[in-house]
């Protein structure tokens, strides 16, 4: 990075540190920090959508749909996320390629499963075999987002399902007596009011989601924990200009600080959001706000 970094062995400790912390490998860990934040930013709303779909179908009057919703919630919640991550990404990838294969190559005669190999026609590959590396990366990233969203969507569905039932029943009955249709009641009365009941559960889920990001490396996204382990491990002088002992402890300490800070900021932001959502609601909190105003 810096011009004086040509021969690190001759540098004093401050300059050595400056060079060490700006190697290409360290740039990778800084980038991965943003990857993790980006992933969280995309996953949270996606998981919420999954959760919303799951919860609305679980409370549907149409029994098969309701069973699907309930089964989704029960099965995914019942399994440790790590077990999902270990095989789900490959399964999703193959599923998408199989669908594309069926659409794009209807004349294909060979088996898709040739022994252990999963072979689809070239134009069905995702992304195409000759596409640039950043497309492969983006695709991998999106698969990771989808996997996270499916897993955490089930938890969100559970929270939203509870929240929908917590909305006072007489409110819904009043709306119906005013002549609103079922879907009008759902969208105009139930959905706007359920958030305040869902928020404590959802904020807890957000905290759990943040703390699940160290498992990202299982999904093929090289996250901060992957790089902390890689950078912190002892390095011998033969393979690096910056030999050092086992420094994993310091890297993990930095990660600890990062996660604690991130948690704290989230807590503050969620508290603010709760105050805004409580505004005008028929709950104890809303009542208290009304009185002080």
């Amino acid at each position: 990075m810096f011009s004086f970094c040509v021969d690190p062995a001759s540098l004093d400790s401050m300059a050595w540190m400056a060079c060490y912390l700006t190697t290409g490998k360290h740039m990778a860990i800084y980038t991965s920090l943003f990857t993790v934040l980006l992933l969280l930013a995309i996953t949270a709303p996606t998981a919420l959508v999954f959760g919303f779909l799951g919860a609305s179908s679980a409370r549907s009057d149409f029994a098969p749909l309701s069973w699907v919703g309930k089964a989704y919630i029960a099965i995914v919640r019942g399994v440790p996320d790590i077990a999902f991550f270990l095989f789900f990404v490959i399964a999703l990838d193959q599923f998408f390629e199989w669908i594309r294969h069926e659409i794009k190559c209807p004349d294909w005669e060979a088996d898709i499963w040739q022994g252990n190999d999963f072979v689809v026609c070239d134009i069905a590959k995702l992304p195409l075999g000759n596409s640039p590396q950043w497309m492969h990366e983006t695709y991998g990233f999106l698969l990771a987002v989808l996997t996270f969203a499916i897993v955490f969507g089930a938890f969100a569905a559970n929270v939203l399902y509870g929240a929908m039932r917590a909305v006072p029943h007489n409110q819904l009955e009043t709306a119906e007596s005013y002549g609103m249709t079922r879907s009008q009641v759902f969208w105009r009365i139930l959905v706007p009011q359920m958030w305040v009941f869902a928020l404590p559960g959802l904020s807890n889920l957000w905290m759990v989601l943040i703390k699940a990001t160290p498992l990202l490396f299982l999904l093929g996204v090289e996250d901060i924990v992957y790089w902390a382990r890689e950078l912190g491990g002892a390095k011998t002088a033969r393979f690096t200009d910056y030999p050092h002992g086992d420094w994993r402890m310091w890297y993990f300490l930095a990660l600890l600080v990062f996660y604690l800070l991130f948690t704290r900021i989230s807590e503050i932001a969620l508290d603010k959001l709760m105050i805004r959502l409580t505004h005008g609601q028929a709950t104890l909190g809303g009542e208290a706000q009304r009185k002080t105003a």
Partner: peptide, 15 residues
């Protein structure tokens, strides 16, 4: 794998 020197590892430049 990128974690098994001298066979394969990630160098200082991240490659």
């Amino acid at each position: 794998e990128g974690a098994y020197p001298p066979y394969n590892f990630i160098n200082d430049a991240g490659e």
